[in-house]
Write a protein that binds this DNA or RNA. Structure first.
Length: 518
DNA sequence: CGATTTTGACCAGCGC
DNA sequence: GCGCTGGTCAAAATCG
């Protein structure tokens, strides 16, 4: 009904591609995509969104596409107006009638769309509620059972948290993700203290590395450890190995060995997981001694072009802006995930915050994409209750070209694998390093709506839209950070989105997935 | 020569 | 208890 085809999109892409600066060798310069860059959002927005008056937008967050749509419609009306002078009145009346008819039809379709969206949201909320309840029961069961058995587990940490001798004044109501990490750190500290008597009187640096601002302010007892915290932590981790933390998994198409996230990593292991011929690589953050953050990288067994990066832990050091956004996002997601089943903490907006995925913020379930039952952006992995994992699936995006990952090296055959990137031309190392994403037009949720092919081809477009959405990361980070209320290490990014942050639900999306890396 | 990767060994959890 | 699997360690190899 509405004349916006895939061709328009491709033409737009080509036009954008022509605008890319060229490298000395004549090829278009590589420009990595930084999903979490607000500056990038601004710069791109100047090409599209900035030129679109708000009144012309179909949706507050719709940027470039609205202009195209408006232009197309305006063109039709313009032609109609000029034809008025030459066409017979009856024909004009017929056209007007037809126009009114189409308007009415459009209105009906919009109503139907809204209804479907509401229904889907309601159903999804129920589904999540069920999942959360299930996870909560499992956690509770493990907490009680394993604690009674004297096994050190994540649940055990929860139990110990309220012990005055360990942490005074920490209540169950403070059982958010960060405090959980504190407890993991505390548990490690206690464990190591128990292991070696010579450790008494000292404290584990690893705890410090895991501490939250609350810890730093003295809520927990933190002392300095003279030993190498990294080793200590590794030992404790290796020996106690049962700590369970939330993980944030990112799936993205890439032929590069690693996505660039702005951090520096050292590979410490590689394993062949059962059922997947691709090895899983283990990395730990080396930007600071004792940083507890680790990540695993593995290709999807079903689709080798999909790179699955799983982050665990929270950085214990300041991050460069390029890394801070992703780190904050994953950390916040993990925190929310951990607190999801038990959270009583109110979100900054005043809403209770039952879940990171809840509809209270609704950014994960944008109504634009509710036509597909699998087009949500994040998912809880319920397959492993001890390792709650949230998956951000960007795998529907176009393949990430390895040209953009110039600083990366082969996963298994090249050394110094790290993501300390050479800044691209836009000044941001990028998150997924995806030149194609730069070339795509900015997000256009309503592009999907305008596309005649939907909903049959919706899913493919969803991925492209996510990938092309420069505000995707920002909105995601904003949404998460708004819920956890953590201090922003990169306020520049978070504040940069001036037109979209108030309605995060508008243009973010990804795909619910299952854990199929192994 | 320091930093990093490689890779076999080790450990803990889990299912049978 | 045994075997399998995932995760980590640490010595050796490699790289810059």
């Amino acid at each position: 009904m509405i004349p916006y085809s895939q061709g328009n999109l491709m033409d737009h892409q080509l036009a954008q591609e022509d605008k890319q600066p060229s490298s000395p060798d004549g090829r278009p310069a590589t420009m990595e995509l930084d999903f979490f860059s607000g500056d990038r959002l601004r710069s791109d927005g100047s090409d599209h969104g900035a030129s679109v008056p708000d009144s012309a937008k179909l949706h507050p967050l719709d940027d470039g596409g609205a202009m195209d749509f408006l232009t197309l419609r305006t063109g039709v009306l313009w032609r109609e107006n000029h034809q008025e002078e030459t066409k017979p009145t009856s024909q004009l009346k017929s056209l007007r009638d037809r126009l009114e008819e189409l308007k009415g039809e459009n209105q009906k379709l919009r109503s139907m769309l809204e209804l479907i969206s509401k229904n889907y949201t309601a159903v999804y909320a129920q589904l999540l509620l069920v999942m959360q309840t299930k996870a909560s029961i499992i956690h509770k069961f493990q907490d009680e059972g394993l604690a009674n058995a004297g096994v050190s587990t994540y649940g055990d940490n929860l139990r110990e948290r309220s012990e005055p001798s360990v942490e005074a004044g920490i209540t169950d109501q403070q059982c958010d993700g960060q405090s959980m990490e504190n407890h993991i750190g505390m548990k490690r500290a206690l464990s190591s203290t128990n292991e070696t008597s010579s450790d008494e009187g000292q404290t584990n640096q690893s705890m410090t590395t895991l501490e939250s601002p609350n810890v730093a302010r003295g809520k927990n007892i933190v002392r300095e450890d003279e030993e190498d915290p990294d080793n200590r932590q590794d030992q404790v981790l290796g020996q106690q190995g049962s700590y369970r933390k939330a993980r944030v998994s990112i799936r993205a198409r890439s032929d590069a060995p690693m996505i660039s996230d702005g951090c520096q990593w050292r590979k410490y292991g590689q394993k062949l997981a059962k059922g997947n011929p691709c090895p899983r690589a283990y990395y730990r953050c080396t930007m600071a001694i004792g940083c507890p953050v680790r990540k695993q990288i593995q290709r999807c067994v079903r689709d080798k072009t999909i790179l699955i990066t799983t982050y665990e832990g929270k950085h214990s050091h300041p991050l460069p802006p390029t890394a801070a956004v992703l780190a904050k996002t994953t950390s916040a997601a993990a925190s929310m995930l951990l607190s999801g089943s038990t959270a009583t903490e109110a979100a900054p907006n005043g809403n209770s915050n039952p879940s990171f995925l809840s509809s209270s913020n609704n950014f994960l379930f944008p109504h634009h994409f509710l036509y597909s039952n699998s087009s949500t952006m994040a998912s809880l992995s319920s397959s492993s209750p001890n390792y709650p994992t949230i998956t951000l699936d960007l795998a529907q995006a176009p393949l990430i070209n390895n040209h953009s990952l110039h600083s990366q090296r082969a996963l298994s055959s090249t050394p110094n694998c790290q993501t300390q990137n050479i800044p691209p031309s836009n000044g941001y190392p990028g998150f997924l390093g995806h030149p194609q994403m730069h070339m795509l037009p900015p997000p256009q949720a309503h592009h999907l709506l305008l596309n005649n092919q939907y909903p049959s081809s919706l899913m493919g477009n969803v991925g492209a839209t996510i990938a092309s959405d420069p505000s995707f990361g920002s909105k995601l980070a904003i949404a998460i950070s708004s819920m956890v209320g953590a201090s922003a290490t990169n306020p520049g990014m978070l504040n940069s989105n001036t037109n979209g942050c108030t309605n995060i639900s508008s243009s973010t999306s990804a795909i619910i997935t299952h854990d199929d890396a192994s």
